[in-house]
Amino acid sequence: MSTIDLTLQIWRQKNSDSLGNLQTYTLTGISTDMSFLEMLDVLNEKLTKEGKDPVAFDHDCREGICGMCGSVINGIAHGPEKETTLCQLHMRNFKTGDILVVEPFRSRAFPIRKDLIVDRSAFDRIIQSGGYVSVNTGGTPDGNAIPIPAETAELAMDAAACIGCGACVAACPNGAAMLFTSAKISQLCLLPQGKVERKARALAMVKIMDEEGFGNCSNERECEAVCPKGISIRNIARMNREFIAAALFEG
């Protein structure tokens, strides 16, 4: 088992109302088999034993699927490894002497709550505005009543794989939430079940997205580059098409 020694510069901020700054910590003997979050656990255990306040960070499943974790490491959301959440980033990606700057996902629409924890409830409100098929429980037709081509199901699944972590927003120079929003719009407009409400959905979700303070897309492709689930910006094109079609008809 090999180990490395690191310098960390971590964003510390007491709460939403206070100012934050970067503080420096050193860690030695970090096993390269550790995940990034386990490395933060080690730091927090050390800070606790020194009577200092541990670093607050969001995390839950630690399997890369719940979307709860995420920080910007040396300027890259979720760190240097492609298609990887922070919890699945392992320390073997780093070497002794590295300086790691760890910051929260920053965006106007994601206020910082403490240290690395941000408030991503704007994402929930985007989904609440129309990210669903309006069916009640019960009385639905047999699952095989509507055949869906395998390719369509696969395309919908590609979009549905979004974990709502917010890395796309953090990476975008405009703080846009278009990759997130378009993933849901795409999933539902591709499937026959979602076609009934497609126009109203596109209009409602884009409207809330704008109201929440997210920016617009200028084709930087930064979102796609950091997305831990490899969601493609083709979805944004699809969303724009949906939105324009809806706006023309419903306008």
Binding site: V133, P149, A153, Q193
Partner: peptide
């Protein structure tokens, strides 16, 4: 299964 399909859950499909 019927409920989830109606909601748009993208279950795997045959060709």
């Amino acid at each position: 299964i019927d409920q989830c399909v109606a909601q748009g859950v993208p279950f795997a499909r045959e060709y």
